[in-house]
Design a protein around this nucleic acid. Structure first.
Length: 89
DNA sequence: TAGTTGACCGGAA
DNA sequence: ATTCCGGCCAACT
């Protein structure tokens, strides 16, 4: 039979995060839901932590309570700066 | 296979 | 506003 490309959850998560447009944000939970597992918010965090692809705007993924969350490229300070700079007031 | 590790979540104190 | 805690889950040992 044909080989069906089996995407890991991590790959789906990256695919979703990749589409977040500038000025918008998604919560870890929303990303998890779109990736197919509404309960995997925590796992999404682990996956983003391991991501270093510049084409994936992982700084636009924040916590569901509105707080910033972490960032592996300059810390949460830098993450907030990026969001501020691209968000239109 | 069984533990361990977190850029989480939501409720409770 | 805070901490604290149990639940949850994929990836990694």
């Amino acid at each position: 039979m044909m080989y069906l490309p089996m995407k890991s959850f991590a790959e789906k998560v990256r695919a979703v995060a990749r589409k977040i447009p500038p000025g918008k944000t998604m919560t870890y939970k929303q990303v998890a839901t779109k990736a197919g597992n509404p309960r995997a918010a925590r796992a999404v965090g682990s996956i983003m932590r391991a991501n270093y692809d510049p084409d994936i705007p992982c700084h636009r993924v924040i916590r569901s309570d509105g707080s910033i969350g972490g960032y592996n490229r300059g810390g949460s300070r830098q993450k907030e700066r990026l969001l501020r700079s691209e968000k239109v007031w």
